[in-house]
Nucleic acid binder design. Structure first.
Lengths: 168, 168
DNA sequence: CCCGATTCAGTTGTGCACGATCTAATCGCG
DNA sequence: CGCGATTAGATCGTGCACAACTGAATCGGG
């Protein structure tokens, strides 16, 4: 029976409170940064077969969930702003997966819509999450715990960064 | 707002339905990606006072831990390769924080060394991890759990990616 | 009806990431 | 000793991220 200890916990004695440490390996931020890059690298060959990059894949996930949304709504889902999304969407449009047109009722807004090819790509993408899940090798409980902690962390960090105006 | 089964399904084993889901919010990879960007964004204003970007800060952490290492060794610590580190180090050198010179005993290798300014910057950086730790708002237990899970995940993913299927 | 403020998407500039490729130095084996 | 293989670092091209800015469309108050 495997224990999640295979990386080994090399007895970090002497540092009960790592919060103020300047050691690279003590930093949660570095674990996060390294994990995120590892995962996107692992996705790369799978997504290459679909002609997508990793952020493009996330955009497609959002569109498969809800089609015909504005750039702004996409940005809210993915926590990205237009300066990242605009060129990305332009590439997806060039690839024939989406189309963009101004909303008749509000010309400021651009509706992002799946093309037939974009809709059909979903079937080919179905196997991707499972393959990644297996590569991650976490138990369902660990997976759920990780997601929960990451969401909690993100919520806290965003709340701290989005300094509430009006209350001091 | 209609958000489907987020944590409503108690059946975790037996039917890992979430593992094969294409819903954005079910994806651990997205939680990871969003958390990582949130954290670096939170770091930005703090590091700006030190004249560092987030990856530059990680390089400095590594150097404060062990000075005078090769580009390759830095890359091993940070899991970055020379195509990322070379320009980054060039900017740190231009900022006067490090110096680079070829090793006399092996002219292929470049020793990265802290300058006086680079060494002294450490004191100004001492308060950064604690400030971030507070913004993350995790208990020490949650922090430790998150680090453990992220390291485990990274190890698995890297092992799966490095895996050369020498089928014979 | 006009004008200032706001909203939305896009553009620009800087700095990562990373695959592919290059060059030079070093190693290894006959 | 010679020469192919390996290693270290740098360079190039593509594609994110994100701050700062532009410009058009819309809204709101007088």
């Amino acid at each position: 029976m495997d224990h999640p200890d295979e990386q080994g916990s090399p007895a970090k004695q002497g540092s009960p409170d790592e919060q103020g440490s300047l050691l690279l390996q003590d930093q949660l931020c570095f674990a996060l940064y390294a994990a995120s890059r590892s995962v996107t690298t692992r996705y790369r060959p799978l997504l290459e077969e679909l002609g997508l990059t990793y952020p493009q894949y996330l955009v497609m996930l959002a569109l498969w969930e809800q089609d015909s949304v504005s750039v702004r709504e996409l940005g809210a889902s993915l926590q990205l702003d237009s300066s990242t999304l605009s060129p990305l969407l332009k590439r997806l449009e060039a690839a024939g997966l989406i189309s963009r047109r101004r909303r008749p009722d509000d010309e400021r807004s651009v509706a992002v819509t799946l093309t037939r090819a974009g809709t059909e790509l979903r079937e080919r993408a179905r196997s991707v999450p499972l393959a990644i899940g297996q590569a991650m090798g976490l138990t369902p409980e660990q997976d759920a715990t990780a997601k929960q902690l990451l969401r909690l962390l993100t919520a806290h960090v965003n709340a701290a960064g989005t300094d509430r105006p009006g209350s001091s």
